[in-house]
């Protein structure tokens, strides 16, 4: 698509637009890169020197020691395994369920459409709170199981609406012709809608994957007594745990904790260690929502 567009002749105003746009994007790159480089730089700096502050994008006192240390944390490996598992499984199931519901909601002739979408939309804005949620998980016997990572969050209402708005924009004629061919609704969803939805499915997959990867609260609430079910992010949060708790702070316990606080540099090294895997998968998904569709099939 990009190639075809540039093949056409461009005029001066177009060229000015492009130059301004490029310049603007350069600024964006610089501004956006800074915080991440800062974390990276600190993670390669010795912890004793980091306390002095003032590190920007380059380590002042370079060392690999911080990374060597965190590789000795064997809980991180167990966490890595569970995090990968929950991310892969959770994303797969989530995309499947969300897109299926989204398709039914995009069908204007579906009688229960209004009921289902209202029923779902409401849940975005209320929650029963911590205690009932905890009791529910207890009563469903999900505590200290892996499934507590997958089941409660499997249906995401927000993602359903995102997918639906995408399907709404697809030409409807395809569906109708398929219907005339005698295909049932599931076949239309599976054969026609899903392939066309690649950009939005990639987006939703990214949202779910990052959400799964980053969540630690469920591990803490439900599985913290099962070391074999720990997740990478929970281990990170425990390491990052500081004395910055706002409540119940008193000198006595603050002193106890202060002696065990992890040095800043190691914290940043763990942060990088935990973030990099999710950054690595990004380009694979990116191509789907950056390239646009090769829309040979979608012609009215």
């Amino acid at each position: 698509m990009a190639k075809r567009r540039s093949a056409l002749p461009t005029n001066t105003s177009d060229r000015i637009f492009d130059i301004c746009n490029m310049a603007f994007m350069m600024i964006v790159v610089v501004v956006m890169l800074y915080p991440f480089l800062n974390v990276l730089a600190i993670s390669f700096n010795t912890s004793l020197d980091t306390v002095k502050g003032g590190i920007t994008i380059w380590p002042r006192d370079f060392t690999l020691e911080n990374y060597k240390k965190i590789l000795e944390y064997d809980t991180l490996l167990v966490g890595l395994k569970n995090s990968v598992l929950r991310t892969v499984l959770g994303t797969f199931l989530g995309v499947l369920c969300d897109s299926m519901i989204a398709y039914t909601l995009s069908r204007k002739d579906y009688k229960a459409r209004k009921f289902v979408s209202t029923f779902l939309a409401l849940t975005l804005f209320f929650s029963g709170g911590l205690v009932p949620g905890y009791m529910l998980v207890r009563d469903l016997q999900l505590m200290n199981t892996f499934w507590v990572y997958i089941l409660p969050g499997m249906v995401s209402v927000f993602n359903i609406f995102i997918i639906r708005s995408f399907i709404d924009n697809l030409p409807i004629s395809l569906q109708e012709s398929a219907k005339l061919d005698g295909a049932n609704d599931f076949v239309i969803y599976w054969r026609i809608i899903l392939p066309l939805c690649k950009p939005v499915l990639a987006t939703v997959a990214l949202f779910i994957a990052v959400g799964q990867w980053n969540s630690w609260f469920d591990t803490y609430l439900y599985n913290s007594m099962s070391p074999s079910l720990t997740t990478l992010q929970y281990e990170l949060v425990k390491i990052l745990q500081n004395t910055n708790s706002t409540t119940n702070a008193n000198a006595q316990s603050a002193e106890n904790i202060a002696n065990m606080v992890t040095p800043e540099s190691i914290k940043m090294a763990v942060t990088i260690f935990v973030t990099v895997p999710v950054l690595v998968i990004y380009p694979f998904l990116q191509k789907y929502f950056m390239q646009g569709m090769t829309l040979g099939a979608v012609k009215d």
Binding site: L130, Y134, W216, Y220, V237, K238, S245
Partner: peptide, 16 residues
């Protein structure tokens, strides 16, 4: 397992 963050986990443990 230890307290993480500010939520009252003891309360949850006691209620559940």
């Amino acid at each position: 397992s230890y307290q993480v963050g500010n939520d009252d986990k003891v309360g949850l443990i006691a209620s559940s």
